[in-house]
């Protein structure tokens, strides 16, 4: 009981994820700033932002539905933290594992997007409604390539469980090299999921103010921002577990360091991509995802099917 509580609240649960999320946000902002030839924020910036937001007044619009409005940030945070427990970090098995947890993790990671939609919808401002509809439209564009590209390695390992996948790639050392195409695709999809720049259409501040979060202020906005930070960590950890399954089962400290490095590598990749690209329009994004990204995801699936027939008996 005590250990479960420790796992949920401190490590690898809420507090660890929060701290790691802040570090990742700092690295993301600093790297973006350095690429734009500026100084960038100091290291405590995400923490200061959070404390400030938490201590600010919290305004709930008169027209909004107060229960839904307040519930959504909490739900987003819970879903992302829960998803993290099913991802193997450095051992060959996650904290909790069952056959099919791959699908559960993907669905838990979809919940934040749904809460953005509902939160935006229930705040009844026009800008939030447009942002909400956009974030749901975007969901249809990136979710399919993401699922397909994560399905391919699972197919090779012949399992639906992330922990069993880690075990499979732990014994078949170089097989992860077959999945590099899928890795590229899932990075693109993750950019869409986190609503980072080429795909930050739902919160495009030059068009629709702040999109979904237009009416959110104070503590609720702080929780939403925290859940986005944590979602970045969980998404990166998922990709690290699926596409970079090397060095698993090392001794705890080394393994932990390797896990942190893997996640930070993906975070850096995401922030470089978000700096070099400019925002697409929603229809351009749809075309891009369905015409180019999804077929490549199918190609990866095909490659792995063939491979499975040839070498993995």
């Amino acid at each position: 009981m005590l250990i479960a509580l420790f796992n949920i609240l401190i490590f690898p649960g809420f507090i660890f994820l929060t701290l790691f999320g802040w570090i990742a946000e700092y690295i993301d902002r600093k790297l973006c700033a350095r690429l734009q030839n500026r100084m960038g924020p100091p290291w405590f910036q995400p923490f200061a932002d959070f404390v400030k937001l938490v201590s600010k007044e919290e305004i709930i619009p008169e027209e909004a539905n107060p229960t839904m409005f307040k519930l959504m940030p909490v739900l987003a945070l819970t879903a992302t933290v829960t998803a993290f427990f099913y991802i193997p970090l450095w051992g060959k098995s996650a904290l909790f594992a069952f056959n099919g947890d791959l699908i559960v993790v993907l669905y838990l990671l979809t919940i934040p997007t749904l809460t953005y939609f509902l939160g935006g919808w229930y705040s009844t401002s026009l800008y939030s409604k447009i942002g909400a509809v956009r974030s749901l439209t975007q969901l249809f564009a990136y979710e399919v390539p993401l699922l397909l590209s994560i399905l391919a390695p699972a197919l090779l390992a012949n399992t639906w469980s992330l922990s069993e996948m880690a075990a499979f790639y732990g014994t078949h050392h170089w097989y992860w090299l077959f999945n590099l195409l899928g890795f590229a695709i899932s990075i693109i999809a993750l950019l869409g999921k986190l609503e980072k720049v080429p795909f930050d259409i739902p919160e495009a501040e030059t068009e629709i103010v702040a999109g979904t979060f237009t009416e959110y202020s104070g503590r609720l906005l702080g929780l939403f921002r925290l859940s986005i930070d944590i979602e970045a960590i969980v998404g990166s950890a998922l990709l690290a577990a699926v596409f970079m399954p090397f060095g698993l089962g090392l001794p705890p400290v080394v393994g932990f360091a390797l896990f942190i490095l893997k996640v930070l590598f993906i975070i850096c990749l995401l922030s470089i991509l978000r700096t070099v690209f400019a925002r697409l329009r929603i229809d351009q994004m749809m075309t891009f995802c369905w015409k180019y990204v999804s077929p490549f995801a199918f190609l990866q699936l095909l490659i792995n099917l063939v491979l499975k027939g040839i070498i993995v008996k």
Partner: peptide
Amino acid sequence: ERFGVVLKGTPR
């Protein structure tokens, strides 16, 4: 941004 100043679009 080195002072933490960020331009926001909404008064909220």
